[in-house]
Design a protein around this nucleic acid. Structure first.
Lengths: 223, 223
DNA sequence: TGTAGTTAACTAACCAGTTAATAAATAGAA
DNA sequence: TTCTATTTATTAACTGGTTAGTTAACTACA
């Protein structure tokens, strides 16, 4: 076993079955962190959920924060990179909007607890976002989000010049897109309890949303 | 001193300066809970922030959860009731949209950490929303949100029939409104770190948003 | 033999909450 | 108005249980 206090174990080799223990810990951690946030989650609870000894959590991930960051990282990876790729493609704005909305809603339908978790975690433990951003720097792609925005901004400006769209910055536009796709998932507890949206209502709500939202968003751009 | 384990002290009388100790505890708790979420917050930290002895937290609020619920309740009260009132008024839809956006953005500019806190808390401690909802029932106004939505829904339908707007349910419309107003605040850490939005950028971003968002939202309704 | 993975037991520190005593405020009687 | 008993507010110290993390021994495998 290597030395440092916050050492993170490299991917497992043979015996553990190609990283199976690590996988199980990550899966369990995601389940527990999503349910309680990292502040409310307990390592022993995660160990039990994973069916492993608690010391293994430290063996593979170092500290609770190390584990929480690993879960945050993979959760955030479901929210951002795909969207940025679509937004900076060379398809028409109309097609991009439709693809983003569908990609976002379909992804989030498969992982409905993600937005609540990511938003909660990023607000209660700001060091998570700081760490992610510095990982981008380390990976040599610090500007990826900004470059995607620049591409999109150029296209939006071109269309505004042509009179197709009103003028809007890429930042505002992307925030509108993300707002309309992500917020309902994070706010679902409120929707459920304040206006009585049950599971079937929720699915219908999302169906309608998936169908209508692209056009609504394009409408925000009308002059 | 009354008996029960989860007893909550009623508002203070004379000596404590018209509830001053309680006020100080609530203020401190809000500060700490907003920063860390209730799972990550520590009672001794709140006591120090309030400048009181930790036992007083229990004296006035019973348990940590009792205190957390009190803070959640007053926080949620800044997010919902005012909006519902505006939305169910008899002003034109156009005026309602503008009023809601301005009310929301101005309120949240004064309390920028509210959305992150409320969304995080409601996802990590779902019993908060459950308790709030049952307080509405106890207060005899279980249907207030739904009634507001019904009023708005009727008006939206009328305008659709007239050909002014496309058909949309009040639920979808209100979620769009809330999404566009609230999400940016909850997502601010991400905006700051991924696309480098600093404080001055942020204020400008909100200024632009306040000015442009009403029309963008009304545009979503165009046929 | 050396290394990685796993276990059971352990531990210092932390945590939410309690307790008993004291101080301050209030209510009621004279 | 004053006094006294009661109630409320506050304090310092305490506590049992929990927590993240550590340790030493063992197992499995190359």
């Amino acid at each position: 076993m290597a030395a440092t206090k916050t050492r993170v174990k490299t991917p497992a080799t043979a015996k553990s079955g190609d990283g199976e223990t690590e996988r199980r810990i990550l899966d369990a951690a995601r389940t527990v962190f999503v349910r309680r946030g990292s502040g409310g989650a307990r390592m022993q609870e995660i160990a039990e959920e994973a069916g492993v000894n608690q010391a293994l959590l430290h063996y593979y991930f170092g500290t609770k924060d190390g584990l929480a960051l690993a879960v945050f990282r993979e959760s955030a990876a479901k929210l951002f990179p795909g969207i940025l790729r679509i937004l900076s493609s060379d398809a028409s704005i109309e097609a991009r909007v439709e693809r983003v909305v569908h990609h976002y809603l379909d992804t989030l339908r498969a992982h409905p607890f993600l937005p609540g978790f990511v938003l909660g975690e990023m607000n209660f433990n700001p060091e998570r976002m700081v760490a992610l951003a510095s990982e981008l720097v380390s990976a040599g792609v610090p500007d990826a989000p900004r470059r995607a925005l620049a591409v999109l901004g150029r296209d939006l400006a071109l269309r505004a010049k042509r009179g197709d769209f009103r003028l809007i910055t890429a930042e505002q536009f992307v925030v509108n897109l993300a707002s309309l796709c992500v917020f309902p998932f994070a706010a679902r507890p409120m929707l459920a309890h304040l206006i009585g949206l049950d599971s079937a209502d929720w699915e219908r709500f999302l169906d309608v949303r998936r169908a209508d939202l692209p056009q609504q968003i394009l409408n925000t751009l009308r002059p």
